[in-house]
Amino acid sequence: MIRIELKNFKTRAEAPVLNRELILDPVCVIRTEDNDLASSVLTAMLGMGREHSGEILIDGIAVQELILSEPLPRIFGYVFAHGIMLANLSLRENLLLPYKLIKDNSADDTFEDELAIWMERFELIVDLNLRPSMVKPSVIKILSLIRAMLFNPRILLLDDPYYLLDQKQRRRILTVLSELRSTQHMLINSSDDDFCIGFAKHSVEL
């Protein structure tokens, strides 16, 4: 179980002040009327976004301190709602980039093995030599989730997991996330009723 505390947290000057506690046991789904607010909570945990103020504590440790202790992808595996990738790199290079920077180059073989396992798990068949603009956004989204999971992050931060996915892909991602639920801490932002009903026992309204 991981306890996340938001103390006097504001995403921007005119936004309401948040003082909340989120318990990851091991999953917590947050939902808001203003979807941007929940997204900002996730990005603020990574130290992104200049406009937010206040403090985020994880098990009593400030996020700013925590992210100095080890490589960021090992602490937080962040998956953007749009599944962002660098346009000038191939899919494989995109997946390999953080892996190479954090693990050493000798880890290339393990990368291919781990990648193959995850792609099979998501029933994903795609030519990884293609550029991101040449594949569907839903494929980018699933690959982004794989990219995050390759580091076995302490907390998986998922922004709108159903966004961009078709029915079949939604079922697949729900199955994988359900399998992961027993071992992987997750903080998920979703306002999708289907996802919340199908996955989270309870969701926290911010």
Binding site: T43, L46, I67, P73, L86, N88, I102
Partner: peptide, 20 residues
Amino acid sequence: TELGNMVVNREVDLLKSYGL
């Protein structure tokens, strides 16, 4: 142009999410 488009497409945020 390239860096501007990277900011708009949130590719710069992606690098930050790696701790880069």
